[in-house]
Simulated scan of single mutants.
Amino acid sequence: MTDLMEKTDPLARQTKKAAQLLVASARHSYDPMVDIDWEAPLEEGKWFLAEKRCSLYGTELWDTLSLEQKILVSREELASSVAMGVWTEHILLHLVSRYVYKRDVSTPQVQFALTEVADEVRHMIMFAKLVEKIGSEIYPTPEKTLKSGLVLKTFAPVPALWALILLTEEFFDRFQREQANDETLQPVVRSVARIHVVEEARHISFARTELERFVPTLSSFKLDLLRKFLANVVKSMREGRYNPLIYQRAGLDPKVAIAQAKASPYAKENAAYGAERIAAYYKKIGLIGGSSEKVWREAGWIS
């Protein structure tokens, strides 16, 4: 009877999933301040981001750089992506806090959401420590992004919350799973990736159950708005990929570097790699369609 209820009642399925994730959180959570060896020295000659994932890889400019310069670019690209991760985690913890505000704290859903807030706070600190450890500096959040974030965290509807969580976390999780197992990378980068992958897997699972409950209830108008919102997030993430400060800090001409990075034969390949799982899932549940699909395609997130 219970199994039948879960198949026909999305709320029952979500409640069971939240209870399972609470148990998993208790068993498999980390304290980055303790579980990462921040005192270990960086290893000479190791990358901060896999060479094939660097924006300039495969360009004429890349071929002119020394190994040391290439590794420096990889460091700055990692630091820039981590800064985007910090902003995203900050927005998400605000949105999740809104989600729990009027709900019963005794339910597994709310208790897991609170656990997720705690995870995100630790991740923000972990990312900041990583930037410091690798010898870079925090990348400032663009003013336009800061302003849009204020609106987003205050007024975004619940379905947009879980859709945003899933979009960003699935995309970055794709690369971090690769990083965790890449022995050409600095050990501290791999350690951070391992912790983030384990804990974000729970967030991804919960966000999926939430979306599968909410999306079917949306009107055509609201579904279209959500599709357009997600397409704008994709567009923003693509633009953030080519932060001029990355190339400036690496000692390159930003205009030349950005032009070549955008024309790289690997640009869309890397974008499609990161978006492979989330794009397939969003197509399946109806969150890619209509005019929004063109934006995903232009960004290289779908072919």
Results as ranks from 00 to 15, higher is better:
residue 22 L to N: 11
residue 24 A to G: 00
residue 226 L to K: 14
residue 48 F to C: 07
residue 211 L to F: 13
residue 284 K to C: 00
residue 6 E to I: 12
residue 27 R to F: 03
residue 42 L to P: 03
residue 51 E to N: 02
residue 193 A to Y: 02
residue 59 T to Q: 04
residue 201 A to M: 07
residue 75 R to K: 15
residue 14 Q to N: 08
residue 37 D to G: 06
residue 164 L to T: 15
residue 151 V to E: 09
residue 220 S to Y: 01
residue 190 R to C: 08
residue 286 G to M: 09
residue 70 K to A: 10
residue 292 S to V: 11
residue 69 Q to C: 04
residue 115 T to A: 12
residue 68 E to F: 00
residue 12 A to V: 06
residue 28 H to A: 09
residue 71 I to S: 04
residue 213 R to V: 02
residue 176 Q to H: 13
residue 190 R to H: 08
residue 200 E to L: 07
residue 250 A to W: 11
residue 52 K to L: 01
residue 152 L to D: 12
residue 272 A to E: 14
residue 147 K to C: 00
residue 229 F to K: 10
residue 21 L to F: 03
residue 303 S to F: 08
residue 151 V to P: 00
residue 99 Y to C: 01
residue 292 S to I: 09
residue 233 V to W: 11
residue 105 V to H: 04
residue 30 Y to Q: 01
residue 277 R to Y: 09
residue 110 V to S: 09
residue 18 A to K: 04
residue 152 L to S: 12
residue 211 L to A: 13
residue 222 K to L: 10
residue 178 E to P: 00
residue 13 R to H: 10
residue 108 P to E: 04
residue 46 K to Q: 14
residue 231 A to D: 13
residue 229 F to S: 12
residue 282 Y to S: 07
residue 39 E to Y: 01
residue 89 E to V: 05
residue 45 G to V: 06
residue 181 N to C: 00
residue 242 Y to C: 00
residue 55 S to N: 10
residue 45 G to T: 06
residue 145 T to I: 15
residue 42 L to F: 05
residue 206 F to H: 14
residue 36 I to F: 04
residue 297 R to E: 14
residue 260 Q to M: 11
residue 7 K to E: 12
residue 116 E to I: 01
residue 293 E to T: 07
residue 213 R to F: 12
residue 225 L to Y: 05
residue 28 H to S: 08
residue 150 L to H: 01
